[in-house]
Design a protein around this nucleic acid. Structure first.
Lengths: 366, 366
DNA sequence: TTGAAAGCGCTAACAT
DNA sequence: ATGTTAGCGCTTTCAA
């Protein structure tokens, strides 16, 4: 197998080497290999042969310096270990590869400062565009800066105020209204909700109850938007909201979700149903239910935002809001690449559909 | 909000702009900003101020052209949507960021040709090193080429023959022996195994039964190695292997695993236990068990390779081999970065420990 | 259709 | 300690 008697070239072959080997100028060699300009077919073949012989590989760095394009997309997600982002990343990666782009991946851990650093890194590396799931809907200077300096930004899963950019979103408020409406329709009147609620605005939810004007949805993070949907569903059904049933973890931490769930289940007047706003919250809440030996749906109906494969493994199967996550990733990449090709088109907000899959974990309260 | 009367600079500031603004040469500006060479503190401050004012961002492309380093790691995994690779990627990303590296992610889908393309892309982009989970243990020319041309390679989760490179591995054969040994100890004599077995060598398992010499473990892919462990465990216990209980899917496809499992469960002499060799196989096999209404562990004991969070959600909890996946990712990145800093040290193979977590899905056969 | 030469933005020699 | 100059490998004028 590996039997090269000649020690491998330390220095990689450059286009100048290829040109010399083929007996042409480096400009011509570049044209032959890079498919630009005019080259006689015969020469092209000769250059190709020489490149082959030398094991030539173009240096995209040098190319990018001139063309100003790196054919690279930067992605800033919260946590690639979260199946939500993993699926999205797969969608992004598939489209990117199809169109000849590479993808640089960074994790922000929902931290605005880390996100800013990540964006800075991507900008230094001259990525052609950035797909970001912002850690905050309001602290977005770094995103605006990127966009203004000519690196287009596509928002993923989270909207932002004061930034005109392409975005791939779902209607969190509406989907949540549907899910909670399902529980209300079944007759539930005490529905717990477990949510992160870490952004300042999301934590002002007490103001949303009653007759006050609704907050601007775009300023909310997903967990806030989903809580808003919860409140709206109650309002629509004429069912009062009990603030004691609303539990915020303050972070994306399954154990915190577990603890908040244990608390709410131990109330004197416990809920008859529970709604978890994403897969992290679901993880902790489900664990808590198991620990307490809660029977689902006998003691408690359970609705989760985000469908996961295991939800059909457990007994009963879990009713869930399913988001087209892989598709969202694909769309995000497609929007970005389209913008790179035609920068002038108006930024668009694509809203993808969420589906409530009713399974065995929801039933009328006893 | 967005009210900038002055149209944003189209062209990004370069070091020449900064130098002029600060009244120094571009070399000095470079030294001040890049922390190399000598600069008077006062000048450094002046340059920093100028850079700040102009919103200067170094162009890493240009820097990389000279230094020959991009501070970027390339990663070639099979599928980032698979939790195994997602966790590993998180580990890699964390270490990379800590040490100032970016990460380019590509998916190979277990396809050698795609893997080769991915490696080529990474090489063009001049990554400093590559972490790869090879799609084949024998077709590895592209990896050898990368290594020989000066881009170090770290093998992740899968060994390879004929390539001396750093590697992060687990002892699949041994771990599998432990898991199957656990079942044999409980008294099981008919244990099914569901595995990919897609590589040519992995499919020659019939030759491993009996007294023939064992195959070279390094030539096997994980599913083959795990099957080898299964066979060894049987041999050690003096229990004959029934080939009818060995089912290969030929691909990483949960539905294929589901079908193979249905088949084996419908045998005239069905197994009393089942062993699945990774999370994809587990997914399909568990689904099949649910469909057939199999009672675990009453009708069937269940052992899975790869621990997943949901395994404590289902009743009974699933006995599983837990791999330190996140840690494996970290170690891979650390090995690569160490090699970048000191290329001369001998390549090492790090073996991380796998733990059998005995839960409720395994019991003595009825 | 080809070649010579300039230059992308930066750093590394080499002066001073 | 600072400036001048020469490139890194490639593409893009501009001539021929």
């Amino acid at each position: 197998m590996a039997s090269s008697p000649i020690p491998p070239e330390r220095r990689r072959a450059t286009i100048a080497d290829v040109a010399k080997e083929a007996g042409v100028s480096s400009a011509t060699a570049g044209r032959a290999l890079g498919d630009y300009g005019y080259v006689r077919e015969e020469i092209r073949e000769r250059v190709r042969k020489a490149a082959e012989d030398l094991g030539y590989r173009p240096n995209s760095l040098a190319r990018s310096m001139i063309t100003g394009r790196t054919n690279t997309i930067g992605v800033v997600g919260a946590d690639i270990a979260n199946p939500f982002f993993a699926s999205a990343m797969r969608g992004i990666g598939d489209v990117a590869r199809r169109d000849g782009f590479g993808t640089i991946l960074t994790n922000s851990d929902e931290d605005v400062a880390l996100e800013g650093e990540a964006v800075g890194l991507l900008l230094q590396k001259q990525v052609d565009g950035i797909i970001v799931s912002p850690a905050s809907s309001v602290e977005t200077d770094h995103l605006a800066e990127a966009a203004e300096s000519g690196t287009p930004v596509v928002l993923f899963d989270r909207d932002v105020v004061g930034l005109t950019a392409d975005a791939v979103l779902t209607d969190s408020v509406g989907a949540s209204r549907t899910a909670v409406g399902h529980l209300l329709d079944l007759g539930h009147r005490r529905i717990a909700i477990i949510a992160e609620l870490r952004a300042a605005l999301d934590m002002e939810w007490r103001n949303w109850i009653g007759s006050a004007p609704a907050p601007d949805t775009r300023m909310l993070m997903p967990s806030g938007a989903r809580l808003l949907g919860y409140i709206q569903a109650h309002a629509a059904a004429g069912v009062p909201v009990d603030p004691a049933l609303i539990r915020g973890t303050g972070s994306y931490d399954p154990n915190a979700a577990r603890e908040r769930t244990l608390e709410v289940l131990r109330l004197d007047q416990p809920p008859t149903a529970i709604f978890t706003v994403d897969n992290v919250m679901t993880h902790g809440a489900y664990q808590a239910c198991r620990e307490m030996g809660i029977r689902i749906p006998g003691d408690l109906s359970f609705v989760a935002y985000d469908d996961m494969e295991w939800m059909t493994f457990v007994e009963p199967n879990i009713t869930a809001l399913s988001q087209p996550v892989y598709e969202m990733g694909k769309v995000a990449a497609e929007m970005l690449i389209r913008r790179l090709r035609s920068p002038e088109v108006e930024p668009a907000r694509r809203l993808l559909d969420t589906t409530l899959i009713v399974r065995g974990s929801t039933a009328a309260p006893r």
